[in-house]
Design a protein around this nucleic acid. Structure first.
Length: 564
RNA sequence: UCGGGGAUCGUCUAAUGGUAGGACUGCGGAUUCUGGUUCCGCCUAUCAAGGUUCGAAUCCUUGUCCCCGAACCA
């Protein structure tokens, strides 16, 4: 057992009890079983962390198994993306990469066995008739007229299904269980259907494919999985999961355990809808930084650590709910705050001229990468007579408690010096285009020579040295906490029209211009940013991962709303 | 009208018959060359009603509400 076992939860308790009791010889084996029909998202991350985490905690192993029993939906692209994302998240399945399709032969032989035992039969009803015969929640099912075919007839028919003699839908292999069962899943569920489709791994070898319920538990059994962890909606599939193991009298019996999947406010997590957003170009692909996919989060600049931390923080239970997305945002900031080097960048430049600073002079100030760990190193930032500051940091009429630039107000330029705004220059339309300031030459480095208090500190870049860049400001993709839960409204109505804002005229300090793709920074006083895939030396491109908390904006917003 | 689950601060989650705790959020305050970080404080919860017990979030009974299930999807 490792030390980093995290908070308690019912799955761990179950596993711990099994280990203590010596079940499965005290062995723990889990698996993460994605269907390669879409990209992994933050919800899958919870399952990945749970499965790999449990295995490592109890000295066991976790397999990666692609659950690829439906050739119509599965593609190699997804297999590649899934591998990449799990590795990025920080987990290693070593050589234990499996495919349900790798078990097709064994599964087929077992199906033959079940037919031989009189526990499976070929049904030749139409899909409609089968649905009809299954009954519904309130009405028991009725037995198929084909239910009592002889073993030989079933064997022959099933063999002919496999040989490709029938069109799709002509026949299906069904488990013979109980058409009157209260659980619909037990009313003679289909085990195999005919699909004349090309499979991404088995090609055209098969034209019959096993169903999830038949394939999954048996795949677990083949791999020696001890604890098969899945989500709540499979709870009433468990009797069927167990029925197949029992019917085949397999000695190894994996145990299915269900937990509540992860959900966040202001996020939609369903492969179907994510695929829809991609296909309808509501976003720019699976790795659009607004997507809750692991690829999207990675491109956004979110760290794997933050994702693992949030997976641990949300816990594991059987209550379905929705985690406040601010918890995720908190974990993102927490890790980035500890690891991202600080830099200065001005998103919306306003020119600032220091009138008493020589025209042709310049100097370079020391700036630490992280002021809380000055020993961790730093860089020099250039300074000269003309600088850029943030437009937002100036107000011609200073509100109450405004510490930033305003006529006559002294402000600190971070790591540089103290300056006072003397004059405001406007263009013909009355827009503020330039601040004329003076500096205190004795404040070099940023400290007041006489200990006078200067509350405001602004970031800045040297006009002469700054590099132009583009920044993409990302915001939540949805404007509604529960986009799926608003009665009478389509979830797509709640897509945030401002989820992406491109800012073209950004000025960054020179050290930022050569940062490699994927590098993450804190732009001081602004937020966390990372270098996008499409960034070039000629035009650096940064994605905003998340903004810094802004208590000034909060205060101002509140005061702007009387009565609140 | 059926089957399977679930109900603890606003949110997520602990407490396994013995002080209802933590995290996030929110609200105060301190510190600060980031209105960031950090630190401190505050607010707020056992679905309901009965019962068992010295003692119940926990056990029993009844009820209420919520989620999942009727693909040849997973």
């Amino acid at each position: 057992m490792s030390e980093n076992s995290g908070p308690p939860n019912f799955v761990r308790d179950l596993v711990a009890a099994d280990v203590a009791a010596g079940k499965h010889g005290g062995r723990v084996m889990t698996r993460f079983p994605p269907e390669p029909n879409g990209y992994l998202h933050i919800g899958h991350a919870k399952s990945i962390c749970l499965n790999f985490g449990l295995a490592s905690e109890f000295g066991g192993l976790c397999n990666l198994r692609f659950d690829d029993t439906n050739p119509a939906r599965e593609e190699q692209e997804y297999v590649d993306a899934i591998r990449r994302d799990i590795r990025w998240l920080g987990f290693d399945w070593q050589e234990r990469e499996y495919f349900a399709s790798g078990y097709f032969d064994q599964l087929y032989r077992w199906a033959l066995q079940l037919i031989g035992k009189g526990l499976a039969y070929v049904d030749s009803q139409s899909p409609d008739e089968i649905r009809e015969g299954r009954g519904n929640f309130y009405k028991k099912g009725t037995e198929s007229p084909y239910r009592n075919r002889s073993v030989d007839e079933n064997l022959a028919l099933f063999e002919r299904m496999r040989a490709g003699e029938f069109p799709e839908g002509a026949h299906v292999l069904r488990a013979k269980i109980d058409m009157a069962h209260g659980n619909l899943n037990m009313r003679d569920p289909p085990m195999y259907r005919i699909k004349h489709a090309h499979h991404h791994r088995t090609g055209d070898t098969w034209c019959i494919y096993p169903m999830y319920d038949y394939a999954h538990g048996l795949s677990d059994a083949i791999e020696g999985v001890t604890h098969s962890i899945c989500t709540l909606e499979f709870e009433d599939h468990r009797p069927l999961y167990e029925w197949f193991l029992e019917a085949l009298a397999l000695e190894h019996r994996p145990q299915q355990i269900e937990f509540a999947k992860l959900n966040f406010t202001y996020v939609v997590l369903s492969k179907r809808r994510l695929l829809q957003m991609v296909q309808e170009r509501l976003v720019d692909g699976w790795d659009d930084p607004r997507m809750p996919t692991l690829s999207g989060l990675r491109r956004r600049g979110v760290t794997p650590e933050a994702i693992r931390n949030v997976a641990e923080r949300v816990g594991v239970s059987k209550r379905d709910g929705s985690v406040d997305v601010t918890l995720f945002e908190h974990e993102i900031r927490e890790h980035l705050n500890a690891t991202a080097p600080r830099r200065m960048a001005v998103l919306r430049p306003l020119k600032l001229v220091i009138e008493n600073y020589p025209e042709d002079a310049e100097e370079w100030f020391d700036a630490p990468d992280n002021p809380e760990q000055p020993e961790a190193g730093g860089r020099k930032v250039p300074f000269c007579r003309e600088l850029y500051i943030e437009q937002d940091d100036f107000r011609e009429v200073a509100p109450k408690k405004w510490y930033r630039f305003a006529p006559g107000q002294e402000v600190r330029l971070r790591y540089a010096c103290l300056v006072t705004c003397r004059e405001v220059v406007k263009d013909a339309e009355g827009r503020v285009v330039e601040l004329r300031c003076t500096w205190d030459p004795n404040s070099r480095g940023g400290d007041a020579p006489d200990g006078r208090r200067v509350r405001g500190t602004s970031h800045w870049v040297s006009a002469r040295h700054a590099v132009a860049a583009t920044v993409r400001l990302y915001d939540r993709l949805f404007t509604e906490a529960d986009p799926l839960g608003v009665e009478g409204r389509d979830w797509k109505e709640f897509l945030n029209p401002n989820s992406l804002e491109v800012v073209e005229d950004v000025r960054i300090e020179p050290s930022l211009a050569t940062a490699p793709v994927g590098a993450r920074f804190q732009f001081e006083r602004v937020g966390y940013f990372c270098v996008d895939l499409d960034s070039t030396a000629a035009r650096p491109l940064f994605n905003r991962t998340i903004g810094l908390k802004d208590s000034w904006a909060k205060l101002e917003a509140r005061e702007g709303k009387p009565g609140s």
